[in-house]
């Protein structure tokens, strides 16, 4: 294990102070578009300032991500590949968040007298099963992409990546369709304990799908001009598979149980 130190030694001879604009830009983007905008919209009910904050924050956010990615791609020769150790550590954290949400759901459900509680419309299982097929296929198509990349076929990788992203978008579309349907039946976020658990868990999962798609955009845009970072490709894939596996728990706990 100790011999890994040698990787770091290569950097030690570059005697200049490293710096980057993008972490700060990204943080400012996040800050303005999430906490500040949320506060204006929901706490102070001031849509004008909320939109202003979003309008300022979102471009910063996108600029930060784009700049960071291009820097990372530019440095890809120096990449030691540690990201593929770091990402699983981060996924451990994500697993714990989902576990907490599920634990809260179990507590709501197991202490309830009747389940589902009064006021819950019928939530079909056909759509979630279709969504499962879509998400699993998207994991498989991404794997095909990775195999194509190993053979050096960048064009084929791009094609499979776009197919994966399309499947991800269809999945999100299904979620929106389902939410729209349920909301029209009067099953709002705060309708009862079931709606609480249902929207929180499926919504939280959908937000992870969105992040996964964002990571794919960061892979795709440089890949179209032939720049491919292997650890970025592997990392985005790892995250996507994780999101896919979580979905099995969501389906089994929320829809089928």
């Amino acid at each position: 294990m100790a011999d890994h130190g040698g990787h770091g030694a290569a950097h030690a001879h570059e005697h200049h102070w490293e710096w980057s604009y993008y972490p700060l830009i990204l943080v400012l983007g996040i800050f303005l578009s999430v906490p500040v905008a949320f506060g204006f919209f929901f706490q102070y009910h001031n849509a004008t300032l909320g939109i202003a904050s979003l309008g300022l924050g979102t471009p910063l956010l996108l600029w930060g991500i784009a700049g960071w990615t291009s820097e990372g791609i530019a440095n890809r020769d120096k990449e030691p590949g540690w990201a593929l150790t770091g990402l699983p550590f981060f996924i451990v954290s994500e697993i714990l968040i989902f576990l907490s949400l599920f634990a809260s759901y179990w507590m709501l459900r197991l202490t309830a007298d009747v389940w589902p509680p009064a006021g819950t419309p019928h939530i079909g299982v056909v759509l979630p099963l279709i969504m499962t097929v879509i998400l699993v296929s998207s994991s498989i198509t991404y794997h095909f992409g990775e195999m194509a990349l190993e053979e050096g076929n960048k064009g084929s990788f791009n094609m499979w990546l776009m197919v994966t992203m399309a499947l991800g978008l269809v999945f999100l579309g299904c979620t929106i369709f389902e939410y729209n349907h349920l909301l029209h039946e009067g099953f709002g976020f705060g309708a009862n304990a079931k709606s609480t658990a249902f929207y929180s868990i499926t919504g939280f999962h959908a937000s992870h799908v969105l992040v996964g798609l964002g990571a794919f955009v960061c892979v795709l845009v440089p890949a179209l001009s032939g720049k491919i970072s292997h650890s970025l490709v592997k990392g985005a894939g790892l995250y996507w598979h994780f999101v896919d596996i979580v979905w099995f728990f969501v389906v089994s706990q929320i829809y089928l149980w």
């Binding site: 451990v92 949400l101 709501l108």
Partner: peptide, 23 residues
């Protein structure tokens, strides 16, 4: 391991306060 649990707890608080959920 443990921060995500706190993050989840306060997120549920946010849902309860601003979106009317019932955790």
């Amino acid at each position: 391991i443990f921060i995500p649990v706190l993050a989840a707890a306060v997120t549920l608080l946010l849902f309860d306060k601003y979106f009317g959920t019932a955790f």
